[in-house]
Nucleic acid binder design. Structure first.
Lengths: 204, 204, 204, 204
DNA sequence: TATGAATGAGCCTTCATTCAT
DNA sequence: CATGAATGAAGGCTCATTCAT
């Protein structure tokens, strides 16, 4: 992919995250990326296709494998859960703009095809988490729990603080200027909370 | 409020939930509610004000008596937590369209005033939950936990399954036609998961 | 005519003078006159008809007779010219809002029928002036002059200072807040100028 | 400036002169100039800015060398006045559409910024005339006169016949089809009237 | 007589997109 | 490969007017 396309995608991500798909105009985008308005259609065909390419392009990050971790026999299931939590927080915090864009789309009932694609991006990680949890249950290390909902808890808790900074800050009693996602202490705090809770829930 | 206004608000809620604020045009809205396009501006002044009124109107439901529950001395803190979970699931499931609309807006960095209003709607519930948890910690019933993040877990878990039916079904291995939110067994399943996990996390 | 109609016409005159016909909405008008928007159509049938009635109603003032003066044998023609000038200034200054409305319409090539009506309002006065001037020429008191253009000079000079206060003040080196039309000294100054010039032009 | 812009401006001038600023819609304008409705905003940004550019563009004609004439020592003041009158009539007759547009705006109390711009266009000419008259008074050639009002007479007389053809024809006893502004004999007649009158008024 | 509610048409503007170069 | 020019469609909104009461 050319640098220019990369450049446009990068700025598009920001704008979509800030203003949503409909709220972002090609003019906005061209202005922000400092390219001609015709460039977008020239490179991507349409605004919608740009959006799809953005998802496809950025999705790469999501496909870095939790898999290895899941298959590694050197760790116990509970250690794997801990690592998954750490890994997940790090990844989502680092890609929070993209993550917001995904969730915006997921929430709407338009662009169904894209939604399916997004699910395919997000779901594999869930599957791996599930594998670990079920393995833990089978081996007798974990209690019998509702694995899908445990996963919903892990991702849901992270999303809850990730998707709206305003809401997050209110919850944490922070002032509006605080950016929790750049604060490694907050990442640790969140990870600790999740690990502790999930351990209490899973371990016999 | 007149029936017509109610009527418009009801349909607007649907559309906003499906297509987002920007994605919904006044013409869409008028067509869905079967009124003249000028009606919307006649009644509400502008699309934005319609949205605000929608939030203000629907927000009424949110001010139900969680507070009474929290202050009721007949229940222990852990019982209160259970009840809060049940109450929360019921309330959010029943108003999921509105809830989706709120979260869409919350995710974007536009219409700041509206966001602040939304926070004011959602936050009080968090505050009450927090009071219960802290009371439980003080009384020695609960372990020392990160109360704000416990709340994030409760609301985040519910949101995770609520905000995207497609994602939820995928997670649960259900087919696409399944509507978990109308299935009381699913509500119970979710409540059980949350209660069990939160109990494990909170109780000494 | 009812008080209410009068009331509406009065406020309509102001608005039309300030903002023009197209620039004035029935809503503006209803708000300014503090009546229901439907009143205007109820009373006058349409915005255009209101305008026509406004012209017809206010035109009455214009038909107060210069005639008597013109036919009065006790005055010489030059005395009559002086009186016509004084009379004209007084009348136009006193009805400057209406006069502005007339000239706005006269300048546009819409509402042709109305234009004809406006000409009929203004023209008679010209005719009388013309009679006086021609009588003066015939009696040998006046030089041979271009009577229609003399009239154009009298009315044109008054209009020049009357139709745009901003331009008038600039010309007179007055600040923007000055309202020349309420200042009797300015009326006298204008009359003196016209009389002196017209006398120099007419008298042998 | 591109041909297309010129083209639009030309037709816009016509329409504004016929129907006023508010009375002219962008659709009218696009239809008359045979361009897309979006073109106007593409080129000018808004209807109001189009108008401003129209004024700015056409105003160029107004900055002709009246000044040189006024400063030319080879002519006496009365000769200069004569030349100013000729020059003024020629200029205004030749740009009567533009001139009507200016006066329409000048008459209304909206778009104040534009009015100020218009005054800046028209006023310099007045200033030059004034300089000539005052110079004549100082040199003893002219009587003591009210210079600003002499200018009001010159411009006012021309405007009086210029701004409404209908009124002008009525005054001149011409039929409605007559176009005085294309008739050089009428221009001469008007010039003769003004020169003769102003001479009688000014010269000792 | 008087008016709040309702409407279809039209307003200016911006949109995503296409095209000629 | 890149882009300024151009466009039809749609955007939110206001208009004068009508209607039921």
């Amino acid at each position: 992919m050319t640098d220019k396309k990369q450049h446009i995608l990068e700025h598009a991500l920001e704008l979509f995250a800030e203003k949503g798909f409909e709220g972002t105009s090609i003019r906005d985008l061209a202005a922000r990326a400092d390219v001609n308005v015709a460039m977008v259609n020239y490179y991507f065909g349409s605004k919608e296709k740009l959006f799809e390419q953005l998802v496809a392009h950025k999705a790469a990050y999501a496909r870095v494998a939790l898999e290895e971790l899941a298959n590694n026999p050197n760790y116990s299931e509970i250690e794997k859960v801990d690592m998954i939590i750490d890994n997940h927080i790090k990844k989502l915090f680092g890609n929070r703009k993209f993550h917001r864009v995904l969730h915006q789309e997921l929430m709407l009932s338009q662009r169904e095809a894209l939604q399916a694609a997004i699910v395919e991006i997000i779901y594999p990680n869930s599957l791996i988490m599930r594998g670990v949890i079920e393995s833990g249950m089978k081996s007798g290390l974990f209690k019998k729990v509702d694995a899908p909902l445990v996963i919903a808890t892990i991702t849901g808790t992270i999303n809850q603080v990730l998707l709206s900074r305003r809401m997050c800050n209110k919850l944490l009693n922070k002032d509006e200027a605080y950016v929790p996602y750049d604060d490694t202490r907050f990442a640790k705090r969140l990870a600790d909370h999740l690990k502790q809770m999930i351990r209490a829930h899973l371990l016999k």
